[in-house]
Simulated assay, not measured.
Amino acid sequence: MADKIGIIGFGEAGQAVAGGFTEEGNSVAAYDLQYNKYLERAEELQVNLFDNKDEFLKNVNILFSLVPCSVSLAVAEEFIPLLDSRKIFIELSASFPDDMEKASQIADNNGIDFIDGAIMGSVINFKHKVPIFLSGKKSVEISKDLKKLGMNIEVIGDKAGQASASKLCRSIYTKGTEALLVELLKVTEHFDITDTVLNSIDKTWYLNGFRAEAERLFKSTEKHIERKHAEVVNVVKMIKDIGVEAYMSQAAETVLNQKKDNLTK
């Protein structure tokens, strides 16, 4: 069977999405420059992995880009001109809204359908069925095809950049909360009152229990600190780009950057 689904970037997120598709009998191809690193994992997931762009693109109709947000525009600039009009390029890297607008313009110039997408949950847990926001000129039409693949899609607008902006706006809250927890524990550990403070908050915050949420967030922060820091950097840039002072988001970036440095020492 010819590959129909293509994944650009076979890191953690790319593997999760690809694995979800293959579990349901879909044929999936993936492209990654670190071919040798991921070949064994690709075989386990029954994914056809390539390190040659031309071979990868031959039998792919729908492409999902799951690369680091710092290179998402460069990847779009590299791949979109290579596509024919039958192919669809869907960006899922939580990039800058401005970058998504630029990528959309490149796609328009090449006669390619481009969709801005934002993953709004845990791709590790939900795989290809993770909630995803879409925006772009043909997002409503294309969402119908994606839903047939079992994807959990919500179209939020017809402009590229809206989906990415939605994810970054939500991150103003989520990443700020993570940074506040890092700071809180520094202080409570100094006074040896961590259990007292967390138990006190536990009685008044979160229906499922603040302590459980705090532990989940800290495990997630330590495991994914590089990605979380990169995302909040994007948040700060987006807020400043629209002329708003990014006090809390800038503070979150500073704290998470310090946490990242401490973890990598």
Rank of each mutant, 00 (worst) to 15 (best):
G9M: 02
Y38R: 08
I156T: 05
D113S: 12
L217W: 04
K87G: 09
S72E: 09
L146V: 04
V123Q: 01
S72W: 01
N199E: 14
I90L: 06
N125A: 15
Q15P: 02
K102I: 14
E12L: 11
D192M: 07
A230G: 15
K138N: 14
G121P: 05
L181E: 03
D98I: 11
D145M: 11
V17L: 08
I225C: 01
E222D: 15
G150Q: 02
N199G: 11
I124V: 12
T177S: 11
N36C: 04
I239P: 04
E189F: 05
K138H: 12
G161W: 00
F210P: 03
D51S: 14
T22C: 03
V75S: 04
N125W: 05
I62M: 10
P131R: 13
L66R: 01
D116W: 01
Y31R: 06
E253D: 11
E77A: 12
F96S: 15
N199D: 13
G19Y: 00
E91L: 01
D158T: 08
K259A: 10
N59P: 06
A76R: 00
E231P: 07
G176Q: 07
A103L: 06
N262Y: 11
F114R: 00
N109P: 05
I7K: 01
T194Y: 06
D192Y: 08
V47P: 00
L39T: 05
V140L: 12
L82W: 08
D195C: 06
G14V: 00
N234K: 07
T174S: 15
N125M: 11
Y247H: 12
L73V: 04
M248D: 08
I5D: 02
T174N: 11
T221K: 03
I156V: 10
F79D: 05
S70A: 13
S93Y: 02
V232Q: 03
A165M: 14
M248I: 07
L256P: 01
K147G: 04
T221H: 02
D241H: 14
K138W: 04
V244H: 14
G6L: 03
Y173T: 06
Q258C: 06
N26E: 14
L198C: 09
D113I: 13
F10N: 00
K203P: 00
K102G: 07
E189S: 10
G19L: 03
D54G: 08
I156M: 06
R216Q: 13
E78T: 06
E43R: 15
G157T: 10
L82V: 05
D202Q: 06
H128N: 12
L83N: 01
F56V: 09
A16C: 12
K260A: 05
F210K: 08
L184Q: 04
G243M: 09
E231H: 09
T194P: 06
Y31G: 09
L49G: 00
D158N: 14
A251S: 14
K159S: 13
L83P: 01
H224M: 09
L49Y: 01
M151K: 00
